[in-house]
Design a binder for these strands. Structure first.
Lengths: 245, 245
DNA sequence: ACCGCTCTATTGTGATCACAATAATCGCGC
DNA sequence: GCGCGATTATTGTGATCACAATAGAGCGGT
């Protein structure tokens, strides 16, 4: 369902006419002057984070190349990178898929999140002033709005942006890389879970986090983030625990 | 110093004769039937983990291809993967280097290690029996031997194997991936530090960890691992704090 | 001597092709 | 009809080439 099989088109040796000269890009991706594989990476990354892929769905190099209107080459590099970040998984077949969630992986993700993300928030606090709090509040409102309407994709996206608007102020890129890899690993599963359960019954601890930021309460902030993670992950964790192994 | 510049040789169109048909390998790498880029990855990974590269040294695709006797193609994939794992870094130049250590990165690495590795050890404990303890003890002896002789490379390698012989029993591949990425990031720096300071004045907490494993003392095990990390990282941390920013 | 420019060499990137391995499909015999 | 074997299609991998961007060497002017 997610990939297409085409035999005829790319057989024409001169098919490069559409994808133009080497440096140029097919304009399908809003880009600056970064490399094609970087743009492909960002596109795939967003699709993974915000629910463009279902857990367990297969991806192919040529299929993605077709979808994104680029040659297989930059796809290879982007996919290789995403595999290294555990957003994708290469099976023994050497075929690539977005990995299904397991209870073991899920538990480790929860542990990692509860260990690393409150720490990131705590480190960020001193660099979060009035302006940043206002911005973060706006993002939280977007989360609430998406939740109310049942806009799952919108929720995924604004929830991500809420959390990372805080975390990025920590200026801790090594810790950040760990957390980003973790988010990539549960993105598709979370999206699927919300798609099943819906977002209406969900409530987060974002307000508590913002309140803690306002009174510069580091302990309270860590607690709020931890509670948000516990609550949200428990919520979607049921989905995998109930339905099978 | 680490790369070579060759202009003439690969210009011959038929140079593939040496690196033979597609699936075959140049026999320079002891391999099974895995892909070439996988073998290249393992080789580079070991060199990074055990001190084959200095922090800040530049690597080039064609240079590595020359060194390892393969075509640039599998090098690209291995390097892309290592960049994603933060073992290598691509600058804005798009040139690749093994990243120099900074105090900020170092601090984050220490935090991550002290957070994740004791947890891994604790999770592994129940799966570590008599046989495994014996094996781990043997590895610790290799560490001591290398330390006594001043064999820095040997120390790097057996210390890695000691730690990961414990961690891998946790069967927690998601956590493991985080820790492996962390080790790749401080490998070159640790190697350099030991190369300067020497290994003679170093002492670890491996014995305490083994003792804790024997009496199945989870708290004690976590404490021993944490102490080992603190002590070792403090030891080499001086090197970067003393000499500059 | 030192700074600036020019020209060359090197580097990562992307395209394209060929190949081997695996998956999918079809057809035949029962 | 239904499993089972042969054929076909698709997949990741590796090689090679061309290109644009950058770095570095060489050289001239002040």
């Amino acid at each position: 369902m997610s990939q297409r099989h085409i035999t005829a088109a790319p057989k024409k040796t001169l098919a490069r006419a559409s994808a133009a000269g080497h440096g140029r890009l097919p304009a399908a991706l809003g880009n600056t002057s970064v490399t094609t594989h970087e743009n492909v990476y960002r596109g795939l990354r967003d699709r993974i984070l915000f629910g463009g892929f279902l857990p367990g769905s297969a991806v192919t190099l040529r299929g993605l190349a077709e979808d994104m209107g680029v040659s297989p080459m930059p796809i290879r590099e982007a996919v290789r990178r995403l595999i290294a970040e555990r957003a994708l998984k290469m099976q023994d077949n050497r075929r690539v898929l977005v990995p299904p969630m397991t209870t073991e992986t899920f538990e480790q993700i929860v542990f990692s999140r509860k260990t690393l993300e409150p720490e990131l928030a705590a480190r960020a606090m001193d660099r979060i002033g009035r302006a940043e709090i206002r911005q973060i509040t706006t993002l939280d409102q977007a989360v609430d709005r998406a939740m109310a309407v049942g806009d799952v994709d919108g929720y995924m996206q604004s929830n991500y942006r809420f959390h990372f608007a805080i975390y990025e102020r920590a200026c801790a890129d090594t810790l950040m890389a760990l957390v980003e890899s973790i988010w990539l690993q549960f993105g598709p599963f979370m999206r699927m879970a919300y798609g099943c359960i819906g977002t209406s019954t969900l409530e987060d601890h974002h307000q508590a986090a913002i309140a803690a930021l306002e009174r510069r309460d580091r302990k309270g902030l860590k607690a709020a983030i931890a509670a948000d993670i516990s609550q949200g992950m428990n919520f979607i964790g049921e989905a995998v625990l109930k339905r099978s192994t």
